Simulated assay, not measured.
Amino acid sequence: MFKLNRRTKSEYIFDNFNIIIMFLICGITLYPIWYVIVNSLNEGADAANGGIYWWPREFTLQNYEAVFANSGILTSFGVTIAKTVIGTITHVFFTAMVAYAISRRDLYGRKLYMMIGIVTMFFSGGLIPYFLLIRDLGLFDNFLVYIIPTMFNFFHLIIFVSFFRELPPSLEEAAKIDGANDFMIFIKIIVPLSMPVIATIALFQGVYQWNDYFAGVIFVNNPDLQPIQTYLYKVVAESSSNQMMMNAPGSITTKTVTSQSIKLATMVITTLPIVLVYPFLQKYFVKGMLIGSVKG
Rank of each mutant, 00 (worst) to 15 (best):
L61F: 12
S251F: 13
M151T: 11
P196L: 08
T253F: 10
V119T: 09
V268T: 02
L264F: 10
T256G: 10
T270V: 15
V257Y: 07
F140H: 13
F77M: 14
D224Q: 08
E166T: 15
D46H: 10
P196S: 09
A175H: 06
A45R: 11
L137Y: 12
A175P: 07
T60K: 01
R57Y: 07
I28M: 10
N211Y: 00
G117N: 02
P32Y: 08
G44E: 05
N247P: 06
I190F: 05
T230I: 10
N242T: 15
F93W: 08
G216R: 01
K283H: 03
A237Q: 05
K287P: 04
K176Q: 13
G288A: 14
S103G: 03
F17L: 15
F77K: 15
A96H: 04
D136R: 06
L144C: 05
A199Q: 11
L144Q: 05
F285G: 10
I52H: 05
M121V: 15
I148R: 11
E173K: 09
L193N: 10
S251T: 12
V145S: 08
L171Q: 02
V286Q: 05
R6Q: 15
A265F: 05
N42Q: 06
F17W: 12
L272P: 08
M115I: 12
V235Q: 14
V217H: 07
W54D: 07
N153C: 09
K188Q: 06
L276I: 13
F204G: 08
H156C: 15
L137V: 15
I262N: 09
S103W: 01
I148W: 07
K283P: 02
I37T: 04
Q243C: 11
I228N: 00
M184S: 14
F204D: 11
F285V: 13
P129L: 12
N5V: 14
T95G: 04
Y108I: 09
N39S: 12
L133V: 11
L61V: 06
T230D: 04
Y233K: 06
L167C: 13
T60V: 02
G126C: 09
Y284N: 03
G51H: 09
T75I: 14
I262Y: 12
K176A: 11
N247R: 09
V67L: 06
F122S: 10
L225G: 05
T84D: 09
R6S: 14
I218H: 09
